[in-house]
Amino acid sequence: MRIAILMTNTDESDFAHRWPMDGEKFPAMMRRVRPGWEFVVYPVKDGVFPETLARVDGVMITGSPASVNSGADWVARLEALVREIIAAGIPLFGACFGHQVIATALGGTVGANPGGWVFGQVEVTFTDGRTMPIYASHSEQVLQLPEGAEVIATGPGCPIAGFVVGDGVMTTQYHPEMEPEFVAALIEELADELGPEITARAHASLGTSPDMAETAEWIARFLEHKQSDIA
């Protein structure tokens, strides 16, 4: 399969460049379970978009510290592309910012988390009763689903932690691509912004690392349209 990665992460800090960027993280995650897949990265946050959706078998939209409510031109352009991808019947997966921009592109709303930052490792509960540990890093979340969307997961302080639209769209508010060492370092990097209470809580949450291969398999099955295996 040929997967387009729409890279939205606007962090160009020295810290960010000491770690693999999202254009590397998402393919690395998926190659754990689908080593033969081809990935093409488009840094849409820099205005670099696919010229065509031909030969694209699936699309993944990454996370970002940017807000979908920023009014940035590239965000509006990405929302239009989301609608085009869905109209073309190409499977679309979004994580964190990706989850949020899919929601707004389809008429949903995104705003500040009512309880403030959610950071560190959390337990996600799916509508079929399954649970999954995963990393969180968000101060905004989807507050209202777009028409036709269905919640598939909830998380701490986050009633819409993931949704589907038919069999062609699947999202998560969380970060399946993040490695434990990166998350621990990110908590320290953002400690001043998070404040002592959230920083301490985030550090305390880091226990047994999430199974990235399990999460990647879940995403891969969706992109392959194996809908019977999706919550």
Rank of each mutant, 00 (worst) to 15 (best):
M1T: 13
I3Q: 12
I5E: 10
L6G: 02
M7K: 14
T10V: 13
S13N: 06
D14Y: 11
F15K: 02
A16T: 13
R18E: 09
P20W: 07
M21N: 15
D22I: 09
D22F: 04
G23C: 01
E24G: 01
P27A: 09
P27H: 07
A28S: 12
M29V: 15
R31P: 15
R32L: 15
P35W: 05
P35M: 00
G36S: 11
W37C: 07
E38R: 08
E38T: 15
V40G: 08
V41W: 05
V41S: 14
K45A: 10
D46V: 04
G47P: 06
F49E: 03
P50S: 12
R55N: 15
V56C: 03
V56W: 02
D57S: 08
V59H: 13
M60Q: 11
M60S: 09
G63Y: 05
A66T: 02
V68K: 00
N69I: 00
G71H: 00
G71F: 02
W74V: 03
R77K: 12
R77E: 15
L78A: 04
E79C: 07
A80L: 06
L81K: 04
V82G: 09
P91M: 07
P91N: 11
F93G: 13
G94Y: 09
A95C: 14
F97K: 12
I102C: 11
G108I: 11
V110W: 09
G111E: 11
G111K: 03
P114L: 10
G116H: 01
G116T: 03
W117V: 05
V122W: 00
G129V: 00
P133S: 08
A136I: 05
A136N: 00
A136E: 08
Q141V: 06
Q144E: 14
L145W: 11
E147K: 07
G148D: 13
A149K: 10
E150Q: 11
G157Y: 05
G157F: 03
G157H: 08
P159L: 04
P159I: 07
F163H: 02
V164A: 07
T171D: 13
T171K: 01
T172P: 03
Y174V: 13
M178Q: 12
M178V: 10
E181F: 13
E181T: 13
F182G: 01
V183F: 02
A184W: 03
A185D: 12
L186G: 10
L186K: 01
E188Y: 10
E189T: 02
D192E: 15
E193W: 06
G195C: 09
G195L: 02
T199D: 00
T199K: 15
G207F: 05
P210A: 04
P210S: 10
T215C: 05
A216F: 09
A220H: 03
R221W: 11
F222N: 00
F222T: 13
L223E: 14
Q227H: 15
Q227N: 15
Q227D: 08
I230P: 00
A231T: 02
